[in-house]
Structures are given as structure tokens and as C-alpha cells.
Design a protein around this nucleic acid. Structure first.
Length: 617
RNA sequence: GGGGCGGUAGCUCAAUUGGUUAGAGUACCGGACUGUCGAUCCGGUGGUUGCGGGUUCGAGUCCCGUCCGCCUCGCCA
């Protein structure tokens, strides 16, 4: 074989006169009969190679060149020369060409289902996934693989420099039925027993702290058997960390340092110090725990004002959970979103669609008010609820600081529903108004912020029981510790107000990392389990190994996990998580290339003591 | 589990209100061509309209079911 001396992205004018060998795929061919041009491709680039009958090329080689087609794999040898037909400015190697004197066809291809070409329209994602090896040949996919590689390398370098120890944790793990549904793996030795694939290495990394590792990191695969989304995959990758002898501030500092390093090295961007926002502020002003602050739209609780309106829909909403404390999920509220300049851009057709939109989040609908210029030159309210709003017009305009040209949208429901609906609506409106800037990868802003002070507990809306908002090992924040230990478990208002030492990193409205200070004190842990309705025996049954470990000298510790796939998505500017995973799965968990999952022979099932009850295919 | 969109030649798409032989570009095959660069020109092959039923004189088009993919709610940190 003619082993390559250079790659297809390497040769320049300074190489003219050299005899070289190239290997690669035929990216395109231009056949002029006695003169054939091939653009040869590898992951480094394209180089034009020329087959010229008059340049001493054997007839056999010319015939072989004549038969070359896209995606054939070849090796060739020839001389680098300045292009006879003039430069091609589109190529890095565009000033030179190789005039071939030896050709070796390494592999002929069947007619490929599609060409790995970034210029033409992409085929179905289904087809791309089925023939992933062709899709990945596309330069843009190669760039993504390369960016992902750089993220791995920068990550390892940063944490290594900062004293972190990389430790692998098991993939075959104990089922801990909290949180997401797990993938199960049957065990051959103990009939009827199963491993689970880890949702995250959470408990292992805490145990590593007890084990004295002090600082741990791992780039690890996590598994959650839940329905995927555009930015979610059942099998995904985390950058997982844990630190000993720290409180919240030290972890946040380490994380911010990592973010700064990563963005500097991957995107060439200097991340300024990140602002902090409380969970409550995020929910109040943005209706979501990962606010996108790239555009200036805020939601507002106007319950007090709405209560003065003689409007049945608002009144009925406000009646709900009337006696509950503020921010209680079941307390009725009216939320408003003032959209500057919305009166013109948000047409009737668009705002009509908002009602359908908020219904998907359980809200009843959206009330719309346009502030327009009246005949008297004063603001006039153009709205279906004029009858109820008109008497309070002055107060309304002043309350929201409305100006002519604004649109105000209202959602009334219990706190949890209204807040979510108006928060989602806010993002929808921002898109409709054209307020969402380009992505960071496309030169737009990188808007980082911390969200902190999450509640420790929230009520499950079906069972009414307390559940841990983050996970049951999350510590109350230091300033809340005594209040938590003193709190009466029956005292709903106090319990609801306890804030954890959790922290999330939010980038452009996306959660890219989250973590918390862990509980290392047994009294605190017991109280958490008790609140979650777990008896000591039940807690022991589920988490005995962790509780035992914590009993043998556990240092205070805290940690965090970054969603690596989402980091890469940001760097390459895609909103499709499958683009940043070499071999992703579909929405039903299928790998279209390998055709996993698949049935297995009966005997294999017997070995692991499994009998399928699925109807025969 | 629910809602929405889609599936027509290898690929990207078209096909009027349900109407005659389902078209185009590209790829592929054959031919021509010595300076192209998404080569060009001439000719050709290529279809279970995802699959199964139904309505109809007639179905790519309408109805029912089903499979697959995507988006999304629930779910998921």
C-alpha cells in the first residue's frame, strides 16, 4: 500500500516539487476523459489530485481513475505542483495539486445512500443514524468530534492541575429506586436479582470522599430510562466532581474556574464573574429555575392588583389556596408579562396561539391587553377584558410601567401552574418578538449565571408528600442548618422555606451543571429521611452502604456534575443532542445502526433467569 | 402514557378538487470531452407512494389500524 506521507489538509505552496503520497476518500470527481480531477478527503481537509494521461500515467491507472466514484478509498503518489488551472480559494490546499503517477484503489464503495456533504441538504436523520459512519465523515461532524475531544482534554488537564483524582466507578450498580427509571441488568448467579445502570455516580463519589480521595473527577456515562428530548438522551455523559473539606463557596469557585478555562480554550471567550440569582427570584421574574437573561422580559405577580378587578377568571384563580402562604404551589396567583413593543409584532393570530400554548402546561388561557394610542393621544387599552380593566386603567399602567405599543399577557392559576406557564410563555414571546440573540457559537452572547438557594423540599403534586428537590443527600445551606434541625416536621411553612446548599450553572437559559453540599452529619441525614417519609429501616435498606460509610468518619464534602453533551452543544451551536454524540439513540432508545435493542435467544434468557412476557413479534 | 408533524425513485422534493402512463434535480449506468473545482454535454436504468385494511367507477391524495422518525406535555436534575 502507498502509505501516506501527508494528510489531505496539509500541503501548501511551500511543498511544491515534493513527491508525496496521500490516502483518503474520493470527495468528488471531475472527469474530462484524458484528464481527471479528484478531490481527495480525509478528516484534515481536501486536496485536488490530477490524473493526466500525458503526464506519464499508465493506461491501467487511467482506466482505474476513470472508474473512481464518490467515497471510494484510494492511495496515490505524485508530485506537488502549483495548480495549472488557477487557485481554488475555497480550499486551504487550493494553491496546489498532486499530479498522480501511481494509483492504488484501496476500497471500492457501493453506491452510498447519501454523500457526506455539508453543502447539500441533509438527508433524514433516520438515514444519517442508520449509516452513521457516512454521516460522521462530514466535515461538520468531524469538527464536532474534535470539539468534544478538546472538551475532554481541557477537562482532564484542568482538574489534574487542581489536584483532582480521576476514579472510575461501576457501571453495574445497585438499584436505588429514587428519581429516574433505571435500566436493569439481570444477574446470572442470583436468580431474580438485578444490577441497575447508574443514573449518576452520586453515592460512589460521596463514598470516595469518605475514602479520603479528597478531590475526585470522572467523565462518566449516566443512564436514565426516561423519554428523551432534543437536548436529552437516555445515555449521556457527565463531568462528575466531588471535593472534601469545602463549603459551597469553594466548590462554586472551582466550578467557575473550570468554566472560565473551558470557554477560554474551546471558544476563545473570557467568562466574566458569574452573577448569582436565588431560586425564588428566578421563579418570580422568569417563571423558570434556569432563566434566559439574554433578553429583558420579566414576569410579575400582580395578584394584589388583579384582586381588585371584577373579573371572574382572576377572582376564581385567586380564591384557590387563599389561606396558603406566599409562593405555596397551590396558592392562586395572577402573573403578568409586559412585552415592550408587543402591540405591533404580536398579532391577534400569534396571541390566539398563546392560549393553546399555555394549555399544554395546564393553564386555562392567556388574557391579552394591548396598550395603544387613543384618539385623545392618551394610552388606550385594546383588550377583551376592557370591561374589567378599564376602571383601573391608571393604576394598571403605572403598576407595570406600560407605554403605548406594549402588550401585556396574563395567566391566572395556582402558583406552580401559572408560574410555569408564564415562564414558558416568556420564552415563546421572546422568540416571536425576535429578542433571542444568536447562540454563543454563532457570535452571540454567553450568558452565565448561578442559581442558588433552592428549596430543600417540594410537595409531590400527586401524593402531597415531601420530596427532595435535588436529592436526599443535599445539605441545608449553612445559615439554615440550625433552623432545619429545630424545625417541627409538621410545620409546612418552615419546611418549605428551608433552603439547600445547592447550586446550578445556567447558560443562555440552559442548565449546564448542578450540584450541592452533601450532608455528612447523621442527625441531619436522619431528619431528611424522616421528612421524606422514610423510616430508619427503609433508609437503611436503600442506602445502607452510604449510611455506613458516613458513620465511619465522613469529611464535609460537596460536588457537582456538568452535562458534557450540553457543553459541546453550546460550543458547536446545535440544539440537537444527537449531533454531539457519535452513536446516539432515537426517541425510543433504538440504535438504528446496530439495531439495538434486539431479541436474544431463549437460552441466553434462561441463563439469567428471565422469561419474556412480550407477545411474539 | 397523551398531543402534533412527517414517511413518494438510492437521496432531496413535486404531483390542482380523489382522475388518464406518479414527475424534476441529484446520485447511479453508458457515451463524449485535457484545466476542472457542486465540471459540462448527450442518452439510459430506477417506484410495493412505510405496512395492512376500508370507502370509491377510480386513492400518493379520504377513513381506520399499525410501524418508524422528529417535536412536545407528562416523566427526567
Amino acid at each position: 500500500m502507498l502509505i501516506r506521507t501527508h494528510t489531505c489538509g496539509q500541503l501548501r505552496e511551500s511543498d511544491v516539487g515534493k513527491s508525496v503520497r496521500l490516502n483518503g476518500w474520493v470527495n468528488s470527481y471531475r472527469d474530462h476523459g484524458n484528464l481527471i480531477f479528484i478531490d481527495l478527503r480525509d478528516r484534515y481537509g481536501l486536496t485536488q489530485v490530477v490524473f493526466d494521461k500525458e503526464s506519464g500515467l499508465s493506461a491501467g491507472a487511467m482506466d482505474a481513475a476513470d472508474k473512481l466514484r464518490n467515497e471510494d478509498v484510494i492511495a496515490c503518489e505524485g508530485m506537488v505542483r502549483v495548480r495549472v488551472g488557477g487557485e481554488n480559494p475555497k480550499l486551504a490546499t487550493g494553491k496546489i495539486e498532486i499530479v498522480v503517477d501511481k494509483l492504488e484503489v484501496l476500497a471500492k464503495t457501493d453506491n452510498p445512500p447519501f454523500l457526506p456533504d455539508d453543502l447539500s441538504k441533509l438527508p433524514n436523520e433516520e438515514l444519517r443514524l442508520t449509516h452513521r459512519y457516512i454521516d460522521l465523515r462530514r466535515p461538520s461532524m468531524q469538527r464536532i468530534l474534535s470539539t468534544r475531544h478538546k472538551v475532554y482534554q481541557t477537562t482532564r488537564r484542568y482538574f489534574d492541575e487542581n489536584g483532582f483524582l480521576e476514579v472510575e466507578t461501576p457501571i453495574l450498580y445497585k438499584s436505588t429506586p429514587e428519581g429516574a427509571r433505571e435500566f436493569l441488568v439481570p444477574n446470572r448467579h442470583v436468580p431474580g436479582s438485578f444490577y441497575a445502570l447508574p443514573q449518576s455516580p452520586q453515592l460512589f463519589k460521596q463514598i470516595l470522599m469518605v475514602a479520603g480521595c479528597d478531590r475526585y473527577m470522572q467523565i462518566c456515562r449516566c443512564f436514565r430510562d426516561e423519554d428523551p428530548r432534543a437536548d436529552r438522551q437516555a445515555e449521556f455523559t457527565q463531568i462528575d466532581l466531588e471535593m472534601s473539606f469545602v463549603r459551597r463557596e469553594q466548590v462554586m469557585e472551582a466550578m467557575e474556574g473550570f468554566v472560565r478555562r473551558l470557554w477560554k480554550e474551546i471558544a476563545g471567550h473570557d467568562v466574566p464573574p458569574m452573577r448569582r440569582m436565588s431560586y425564588r427570584e428566578a421563579m418570580e421574574d422568569y417563571g423558570i429555575d434556569r432563566p434566559d437573561t439574554r433578553y429583558d422580559l420579566k414576569t410579575r405577580d400582580i395578584s394584589a392588583f388583579a384582586g381588585k378587578m371584577d373579573f371572574a377568571i382572576f377572582k376564581n384563580a385567586l380564591e384557590k389556596g387563599k389561606d396558603r402562604p406566599a409562593f405555596n404551589s397551590r396558592k392562586g396567583v395572577v402573573k403578568a408579562l409586559r412585552v415592550p413593543g408587543g402591540a405591533e409584532k404580536l398579532t391577534r393570530k400569534i396571541t390566539d396561539g398563546y392560549t393553546e400554548f399555555v394549555k399544554t402546561f395546564g393553564a386555562g388561557g392567556v388574557a391579552v391587553v394591548k396598550v395603544v394610542k387613543g384618539e385623545d393621544g392618551q394610552p388606550r387599552l385594546d383588550t377583551g377584558i376592557a370591561k374589567f380593566l378599564e376602571p383601573l386603567k391608571g393604576e394598571f399602567l403605572a403598576l407595570l410601567g406600560c407605554e403605548v405599543g406594549d402588550t401585556v399577557l396574563f395567566v391566572a392559576d395556582v402558583y406552580s401552574v401559572a408560574t410555569k406557564a408564564i415562564g414558558e410563555l416568556r420564552q415563546r414571546v421572546a422568540r416571536d418578538m425576535g429578542m433571542v440573540p444568536r447562540s454563543g457559537a454563532e457570535g452571540g452572547p454567553w450568558n452565565f449565571l448561578w442559581v442558588v438557594d433552592f428549596p430543600m423540599f417540594e410537595r409531590n403534586k400527586d401524593t402531597g408528600k415531601w420530596v427532595a428537590m435535588h436529592h436526599p443527600f443535599t445539605s441545608p445551606n449553612d445559615d439554615q442548618m440550625q433552623a432545619f434541625l429545630d424545625a417541627n416536621e409538621e410545620d409546612e411553612v418552615t419546611i418549605e422555606g428551608i433552603v439547600s446548599a445547592g447550586y446550578d450553572v445556567v447558560l443562555n437559559g440552559q442548565e449546564i451543571a448542578g450540584g450541592s453540599v452533601r450532608i455528612h452529619d447523621r442527625a441531619v441525614q436522619s431528619k431528611v429521611f424522616k421528612l421524606l417519609g422514610m423510616t430508619p429501616d427503609q433508609a437503611k435498606e436503600k442506602f445502607s452502604f452510604l449510611l455506613e460509610a458516613l458513620a465511619y468518619g465522613a469529611p464535609p464534602h460537596a460536588g457537582v456534575a456538568f452535562g458534557l453533551d450540553r457543553l459541546v452543544m453550546n460550543f458547536v451551536g446545535t440544539d440537537n443532542i444527537r449531533d454531539v454524540i457519535a452513536f446516539p439513540k432515537t426517541q425510543t432508545g433504538a440504535d438504528l445502526m446496530t439495531r439495538a435493542p434486539s431479541p436474544v435467544p431463549e437460552g441466553q434468557l434462561r441463563d439469567v433467569h428471565i422469561k419474556s412476557i412480550a407477545p411474539p413479534a
